[in-house]
Amino acid sequence: MRRVVFNQKGGVGKSSITCNLAAISAARGKRTLVVDLDPQGNSSHYLLGQPASELKNTVADLLEQTVGFSVFNRRPDEFVHGTAWENLYVLPASPELEFLERKLEAKHKIYKLREALKKLGEEFEEIYIDTAPSLNFYARSALIAAERCLIPFDCDDFSRQALYNILNEIRDLQEDHNPDLVVEGIIANQFQPRASLPKQLLRELMDEGLPVLPVRLSSSVKMKESHQSRQPLIHMAPKHPLTRQFEDLYRVLAGESVELEPLAE
């Protein structure tokens, strides 16, 4: 299974959702890989404890092979890093992704990520892809490489307008490049249950027939603490309400039965 967590809008929690779902997958005993395609490298730093600028053997090095700048062609698994947690691995980002992007585009290498991830899929049961907050070459590559797409939504009107654009872009990519890509759903993040506007927006999206997931991820300082300690919530605070929400989200995406509270009026 290859899942991309994507939104063109920044600050919606893509990296947090990617890493915490992957950590839950690994904790369940599944060999799990996070692919970080954001030059900022937030997912890489979160799970490996080092800034992306200090890492070697990155996804940039892997992709650079495809444009003929490397003497040796190495296997995709040679760029994978282990983490402190069993079954959880990272193909880390690099600031070099920004400089490499034009070269990859010029040589029409949009399918190379999919080829690499299919090979890695022989070793990993679940692959999670994090992208930068833009529909750039790497985001398109990820959407072409993925089988499923999860869209974080932070419950404001700007995010709503961006959501419509994202869904249109995904439809175009499905038609032209990846008909097997499934939009799993829209996940409300940093949700404030006592505020009326977030609930109103979610109800309106559901009335429009959009695939809003029944789990909502609350706003919590615990997530910031998790970032600071470089520990996914399942390891840092396994009994915290936000951790349980992530576990519910994982179960929903896995098609398991979950008892959830309906969206209050």
Rank of each mutant, 00 (worst) to 15 (best):
residue 3 R to Q: 09
residue 5 V to G: 02
residue 9 K to N: 02
residue 10 G to P: 04
residue 12 V to D: 05
residue 13 G to F: 05
residue 14 K to C: 03
residue 16 S to C: 06
residue 17 I to N: 01
residue 18 T to L: 01
residue 22 A to D: 08
residue 25 S to P: 04
residue 26 A to C: 12
residue 26 A to P: 07
residue 27 A to H: 07
residue 34 V to T: 05
residue 35 V to K: 05
residue 38 D to K: 02
residue 41 G to D: 01
residue 44 S to Y: 00
residue 46 Y to S: 01
residue 46 Y to W: 13
residue 49 G to L: 12
residue 50 Q to L: 14
residue 50 Q to F: 09
residue 53 S to W: 09
residue 60 A to L: 04
residue 61 D to H: 13
residue 62 L to N: 00
residue 63 L to T: 01
residue 63 L to D: 02
residue 63 L to E: 05
residue 65 Q to Y: 09
residue 72 F to A: 09
residue 72 F to L: 14
residue 74 R to H: 10
residue 75 R to N: 13
residue 79 F to Y: 15
residue 80 V to S: 09
residue 81 H to R: 12
residue 84 A to G: 12
residue 84 A to H: 13
residue 85 W to C: 10
residue 91 L to P: 08
residue 91 L to A: 08
residue 91 L to E: 08
residue 92 P to E: 04
residue 94 S to N: 11
residue 96 E to D: 15
residue 96 E to Q: 15
residue 99 F to G: 15
residue 99 F to W: 07
residue 99 F to D: 15
residue 101 E to L: 12
residue 102 R to L: 15
residue 103 K to A: 15
residue 103 K to L: 14
residue 103 K to V: 12
residue 103 K to E: 14
residue 105 E to G: 02
residue 105 E to K: 11
residue 105 E to R: 10
residue 111 Y to A: 12
residue 111 Y to G: 08
residue 112 K to L: 10
residue 115 E to I: 10
residue 116 A to C: 14
residue 116 A to F: 14
residue 119 K to T: 10
residue 120 L to R: 03
residue 128 Y to C: 00
residue 129 I to L: 04
residue 132 A to V: 00
residue 137 F to A: 00
residue 140 R to I: 09
residue 141 S to Y: 02
residue 142 A to L: 01
residue 142 A to S: 06
residue 142 A to G: 09
residue 143 L to T: 04
residue 145 A to Y: 00
residue 148 R to D: 08
residue 148 R to M: 11
residue 149 C to A: 11
residue 152 P to S: 03
residue 152 P to L: 00
residue 153 F to W: 00
residue 157 D to L: 15
residue 159 S to W: 01
residue 161 Q to D: 14
residue 161 Q to H: 14
residue 166 I to F: 07
residue 167 L to E: 02
residue 174 Q to M: 05
residue 175 E to T: 12
residue 178 N to I: 07
residue 181 L to V: 05
residue 182 V to S: 08
residue 183 V to P: 07
residue 186 I to M: 05
residue 187 I to L: 13
residue 187 I to E: 04
residue 192 Q to H: 09
residue 192 Q to L: 14
residue 194 R to W: 09
residue 197 L to P: 05
residue 199 K to G: 08
residue 204 E to R: 08
residue 204 E to N: 06
residue 208 E to F: 07
residue 208 E to G: 00
residue 213 L to A: 02
residue 213 L to C: 07
residue 215 V to F: 03
residue 215 V to L: 08
residue 220 S to E: 11
residue 221 V to P: 01
residue 221 V to E: 04
residue 222 K to I: 12
residue 224 K to L: 05
residue 226 S to P: 13
residue 228 Q to E: 11
residue 232 P to D: 13
residue 235 H to Y: 14
residue 236 M to G: 09
residue 237 A to C: 12
residue 240 H to W: 11
residue 241 P to F: 04
residue 241 P to M: 03
residue 242 L to M: 13
residue 244 R to A: 11
residue 246 F to S: 06
residue 249 L to D: 02
residue 250 Y to D: 03
residue 253 L to C: 08
residue 254 A to P: 04
residue 257 S to D: 12
residue 261 E to I: 09
residue 262 P to G: 10
residue 262 P to S: 10
